[in-house]
Design a protein around this nucleic acid. Structure first.
Length: 796
RNA sequence: GCCUCGGUGGCGGAAUAGGUAGACGCAAGGGACUUAAAAUCCCUCGAGUAUUAAAGCUCGUGCCGGUUCGACUCCGGCCCGAGGCACCA
């Protein structure tokens, strides 16, 4: 009888003691860097979803290591963030202590699952030795003009006296207390990420990200090419600029809309309209982003009394303000072409504004036609299609100095301040005389002080603001009295560069040495959840591109392949959650069925990139498979060659498993091994080599039991051996069964040999009784004979 | 609304590159072994139809059409589900 618990412990200790998975920077072996998103160590412990992605990357790492590469497979902790702070507020435990406990639990759980992490490289984003460099990098952003302070509206809960993220204030209601969230202007640190829009777009060409990941990034950046067009205001010596992607429809512009916050509004509002405008602006100010951008709601707005001059035909068109125009995108002003824009159409319908079609197609009495078409009512554009007309219009505008070609991006600058305690303090000091002054680099890290209370202040400052002896300091420039910044960095900061730190985690001179980064080159595989493919990945790429531009990292893109995994759902096909009572705890499964069974099941349960419900019965099937592997040992005879009649299937299996582990076909890799084991089971005896190969192929997925059985055969540990090789010639079956079709329907199956000619195959097919039955009295008008694939007779 | 990914047996899912749909596993049913149970082993297992039996035949990969000798796979048009984005001019 095998005691899984003991076997697992034995091998886990062996790996730890022998540093079996140590990655050596500078080794002559070829480097290979496999990364899986480091977790946020929550209080609820490791999720079975973590187990799925860690096992996947672990099996890849184990195989590639056996293939002779120097594999870097690290693990660490992303431990700053709101949950730990909430927990601290409730229980009056310093987040640092809670995090320490949680990390201990996570690490213990990971170790019982036998993941081959190089634990010597472990760190947490909350370690001062780590966040020192996060702060240092912030200073580089600042010194290069990439960090600045700006006043931006934030979601504010007046009851909790706290700034909320968009997620925590969904629907305009505070998630915690249910109060109405309001918008409040706050001065925040920003990073000039929008400067990198084009580089972040182009950089995607230097990556091997999955297509859907690239698309996610492209959409987030949201590039659109259009034109800026100047509109003069009638009776005023003022003008404003609109951004449009359809300047070809300019002849159809029948009114303009400014965002309520547009700085020109007050100036050009007429006295008759002033009251309504003020009221409307006040109403808008009360709404938060969520409410303002809620779709399907009625368009609102007011006329401000003035008119703009359409630059192409000098027509006077009314100016409105409406919150469907956003101050933060483009120029905060639009020309409205109701005939060819759905939003403008809706607005024009409601306010009874003129609708002039300038494109053939559609029916303006019913809807806006937004497609391509031949221009009408458009002067010099008549008869042209969309692209021709756009080019011609831009030419016209530029010549008359009325406008120019313009590119806009949806991506905004990164709001980098959080009014929280549990984050990296921003190393900036405010001096009345000198303004914002960066801390001296040699004074880093700026440590988070120990405090007794974690609640934010009444005016929404971070709790750090209450610690006066921390806040009050001297100006690094003039030595006068000064105050520290009390905001901290967002959770995304520490995770934007951790993969670089893993390349050189103990360096106390730099965040990572150029030599180490040059040796590891980049992350070869990066696995994480689909929910992080837009933001986290974009932040990380931005961070790296910035570091590259100031000469601190060797490549502009440091992540090569990005893949995402599916979620492990509860048995009820719902997301696992405590409230639904469908949570599976990996500890329980390991205790009852063993780590190898859990690992095998999670890899076998379905397509790795898709969500999949948990099924304990199916898990038991994987345990049966492991038991079968153990039983096969009784059939082993002392022979160091492959069994003659197993040679082909073994070679095929090596090829298939190897390929599947590289392409994340874990479920089919296991099914291949199940088929192989079933084949072995049909034989009375198998050789030592047959068995050893099966154990080695299974080892990346089920490392403990395979090491144990391998040791019993008298071999040295699998983790110190090589991955088996296959002989291409021996992966081809001598004979193969192919279908014989008549008019595309299968009527027989014949065995064909690899080298048989089409003529021989045809003869064989024609001998089949059922084939003859169908051919009788018919004429064959076409024969399709593809050796090794199919025979099809088309008859009449 | 837009973008992305999906839809295949009772279930999870397979199906290089258009070439025998349902691999592998689970569940279910039947049988063997056993005093019994567990474990293990063997058989059946998409639907329908037919036969004493074995072949056999028809239908079948969300729906409708198309391309092709041949379509889960390619094309066009829908329906449903999951996730992301949200009036971005």
């Amino acid at each position: 009888m095998y005691n899984f618990k003991e076997i697992e412990k034995k091998w886990q200790e062996y790996w730890e003691k022998n540093k079996s998975f140590k990655a050596e920077t500078g080794s002559s072996k070829e480097p290979y860097y496999i990364l899986v998103e480091f977790p946020y160590p929550s209080g609820s412990g490791l999720h079975v979803g973590h187990v799925r992605s860690y096992t996947a990357q672990d099996s890849m790492a184990r195989m590639i290591r056996m293939q002779g590469k120097n594999v870097l497979f690290p693990m660490g902790w992303d431990a700053f963030g709101a949950p730990a702070e909430q927990y601290a507020i409730k229980n009056h435990i310093h987040p640092k202590d809670a995090v320490k406990e949680n990390i201990k639990t996570f690490k213990r759980q990971m170790q019982t699952l036998g993941f081959s992490f190089d634990w010597d490289r472990e760190f947490s984003t909350t370690d001062p030795e780590y966040y020192k460099w996060t702060q240092w990098q912030f200073l580089q952003f600042y010194k290069n003009g990439m960090a600045y302070k700006d006043t931006v509206p934030v979601n504010w809960c007046p009851t909790c006296k706290s700034v909320l993220s968009n997620e925590d204030s969904a629907g305009g209601i505070c998630e915690r207390c249910g109060s109405q969230v309001v918008q409040k202007e706050k001065s925040q640190w920003m990073l000039r990420m929008s400067d990198y829009s084009e580089d972040l777009l182009n950089g995607l060409n230097d990556t091997n990200f999955a297509e859907k990941v690239k698309l996610g990034q492209i959409n987030w950046i949201g590039k659109s090419i259009g034109a800026d067009v100047k509109f003069k205001v009638d009776n005023y010596d003022e003008e404003f600029v609109v951004f449009t992607t359809r300047c070809d429809t300019l002849f159809g512009a029948t009114y303009c809309v400014l965002a309520p916050e547009h700085k020109l509004v007050d100036k050009i509002t007429t006295e008759e309209c002033r009251k309504a405008v003020i009221e409307y602006k006040e109403a808008c100010a009360l709404k938060n982003d969520m409410e303002r951008t809620e779709l399907n709601k009625d368009k609102t707005g007011v006329f401000i009394g003035s008119y703009a001059i359409n630059p192409v035909n000098n027509k006077k068109i009314p100016i409105y303000i409406s919150d469907y125009v956003l101050a933060s995108y483009g120029t905060g002003a639009i020309m409205a072409v109701p005939a060819h824009d759905e939003r403008d159409y809706e607005f024009a319908q409601k306010f009874g504004l003129e609708i002039i079609p300038v494109l053939k197609g559609g029916d303006v009495s019913k809807e806006a036609f937004v497609g391509d078409g031949v221009h009408i009512n458009s002067g010099f554009l008549d008869g042209l299609n969309k692209n021709e007309a756009i080019s011609k219009m831009i030419e016209f505008l530029e010549e008359k100095k009325l406008g120019s070609k313009k590119v806009n991006y949806k991506m905004r600058d990164w709001i980098f301040s959080r009014q929280r305690f549990w984050g990296e303090p921003i190393p900036m000091i405010y001096c009345e005389k000198c303004g914002w002054v960066p801390m001296k680099e040699e004074d880093l890290p700026l440590l988070l002080p120990d405090v007794a209370e974690y609640e934010p202040t009444d005016n929404g400052e971070s709790p750090l603001a209450k610690i006066t002896d921390w806040v009050n300091t001297t100006c690094p420039k003039c030595g006068g009295n000064a105050r520290r910044e009390t905001d901290t960095m967002p959770n995304w900061a520490g995770s934007s560069w951790y993969f670089l730190r893993f390349m050189d985690p103990h360096n106390d001179k730099e965040f990572a040495s150029m030599d180490a980064m040059k040796y590891w080159r980049r992350v070869d595989w990066y696995n994480g959840g689909m929910e992080h493919t837009a933001r986290h990945l974009l932040y990380a790429r931005f961070w790296v591109q910035f570091l590259y531009n100031i000469g601190l990292v060797p490549n502009k893109e440091m992540i090569w392949t990005r893949v995402s995994h599916g979620m492990v759902l509860g048995a009820d096909n719902q997301k696992m959650s405590k409230s639904k009572g469908n949570v599976i705890n990996p500890d329980d499964i390991v205790a009852e069925y063993g780590a190898d069974t859990l690992r095998t099941y999670e890899m076998f349960m379905g397509d790795y990139q898709m969500d999949c419900p948990w099924n304990t019965d199916s898990l038991k099937g994987c345990r049966r498979f492991i038991d079968k592997i153990i039983r096969l040992k009784d059939k082993v005879i002392n022979d160091e060659n492959y069994s003659k009649n197993l040679e082909i299937i073994i070679n095929k299996s090596i090829k298939k498993v190897q390929n599947d582990l590289y392409t994340m076909g874990f479920n089919t890799a296991i099914s291949t091994l199940m088929i192989l084991a079933n084949k072995y089971d049909e034989h009375d005896h198998i050789t030592k080599k047959d068995y050893k190969t099966l154990l080695t192929l299974l080892n990346p997925i089920a490392p403990h039991i395979t090491e144990e059985l391998n040791e019993e055969l008298g071999y040295r540990p699998i983790c110190e051996s090589s991955w088996p090789t296959y002989d291409e010639e021996k992966t081809i079956d001598i004979s193969k069964k192919i279908a014989v079709q008549i008019n595309g329907k299968v009527r027989a199956a014949i065995d064909v040999l690899e080298q048989e000619t089409a003529e021989e195959i045809k003869e064989k097919a024609l001998k089949e009784q059922n084939v003859q039955k169908y051919l009788e009295g018919k004429e064959i008008i076409k024969e399709i004979i593809i050796p090794n694939k199919i025979v099809n007779f088309v008859i009449k």
